[in-house]
Write a protein that binds this DNA or RNA. Structure first.
Lengths: 244, 244
DNA sequence: GTCGTTATTCTCATACTGAGATTGTCTCAC
DNA sequence: GTGAGACAATCTCAGTATGAGAATAACGAC
């Protein structure tokens, strides 16, 4: 039997059927606090429970494309959104309906309009990560992984610029780091560091129209630079507890 | 319809069937050079071509467990092997038989015995990463991702200790970094750095039985410490070309 | 105008890094 | 045995990065 004959005789049903879903952890910053996009499930299982937006992949649809579709179904936005694969989850009992393997994605977006509920959700909202409800399936674990990944990626990539607008001030950028890491940073040292890392930001020559809402001088405006990696990296303050 | 009724009426065949496989990138160091475990395919598609070891997940089998099973089928070893999930690949045409989503795993092991061919492979071997044949499916891309991940993880985790024996010398550890990163390192600085990172290695109080094969004093023996993260990290030499 | 706020820049002590050199122990070839 | 070369381990030194605090100056609110 040559390769062509083999393929013609091949029976896909001989292999155990598994459903594959994508689940998206979409993060944004609202009012200086990190928020995640959640949907309230309208159908069993876990009807009424909050969950990550996601769904089954379609025939002929790549994983990345499925994730982008799920995200745009809830937010309507695909512009200026960074999306990347995170990990896969396939515990045999993670979905009571059948064997489901979920590929999770992490997305970052600047301040976004209110989300809209998709077809299988009764509601959708940005929820502060410090005020999470109980989540459906194993989505709490997925979210935990996503947050840790996001925190780590801020260290060595210019990802933070995906959370702000086209142009931004150093203070706005610092606000992103403080929101995602959940710690206050030294303004002076942060400023020095951002400007000293090659390709992180580049000057626009402009400044803000006015000072901040509570006073202070006009800030210079920057745009994202061309670096893909920050070198040297911008490390989080000491994390002794995580080392061992 | 309540949740129980819904589940009873649920028809899994309403969703597009997808097969899920795991593919393992198993790395080891032989003769100071990085090698990857490959199998020669005995069945179509790609019969006769080299590929990563892997296969379909079984009903009721978790992803991690499937990866460990595939690895042990080829190497017979599960001890002292570090294994972790890497990424998933689901391009619609990546397997000519049917829709296949592959979850890739990365495994590291100390110097291992010769592999044995599994049921669906005609041969299995450790192949130097600088002498790779053309691979089946999209396995070259998976392997590239795995190598980059392994190189990155050496920087901030004590993973290198998974490539050496129970006890080891600083020079052996340096050999791991040099093999994986593909660059020579400054022996004195490496020595200083390894001993200064808390929890990376701990002294056994022993030394090697004799000097090296080409002379030199006996070296002190260390074992892996209790650190899960290296802090500060052990960074690769400048990689200007990767920054932009 | 005065005051509080904040952007930006400095200072300074400490820590980390790369490059090179030193010391002393060991194996091998002769 | 003896000498040459290899190599573990330690040190020096200059350059760079970091954390903490302070100084300067521009702005909004009153």
């Amino acid at each position: 039997m040559d390769e062509r004959e083999y393929l013609a005789a091949y029976d896909p049903r001989a292999y155990p059927a598994v459903a594959v879903t994508v689940d998206v952890v979409a993060l944004t910053i609202i009012g200086g606090l990190l928020h995640v996009l959640l949907v309230e499930r309208g159908e069993p299982p876990f009807a009424g429970r909050w969950a990550l937006p996601g769904g089954f992949i379609r025939p002929g649809e790549d994983l990345d494309r499925a994730a982008a579709r799920e995200l745009s179904e809830e937010t309507g936005m695909t512009d200026r959104v960074h999306i990347e694969q995170l990990a896969s989850y396939g515990a045999p009992d993670r979905d009571p309906r059948m064997r489901v393997v979920s590929v999770s994605y992490l997305a970052f977006a600047p301040d976004l309009p209110d989300p809209r509920a998709g077809s299988d959700a009764s509601d959708a909202a940005w929820i502060g990560v410090d005020h999470l409800p109980e989540l459906a399936f194993d989505h709490e674990r997925i979210l935990d992984h996503a947050l840790e990944r996001a925190r780590a990626k801020l260290e060595y990539t210019p990802l933070a610029t995906a959370f702000v607008g086209e142009t931004f001030t150093i203070s706005e950028l610092r606000g992103v780091y403080e929101a995602v890491w959940g710690v206050p940073l030294h303004a002076g040292n942060f400023h020095r560091k951002v400007l000293s890392v090659p390709g992180f930001v580049e000057s626009t020559g402009q400044t803000t129209e006015s000072g901040g809402p509570r006073g202070g001088p006009r800030a210079k405006l920057y745009r994202a630079g061309d670096a893909r990696l920050l070198h040297p990296a911008l490390l989080r303050p000491e994390r002794e507890e995580e080392v061992r």
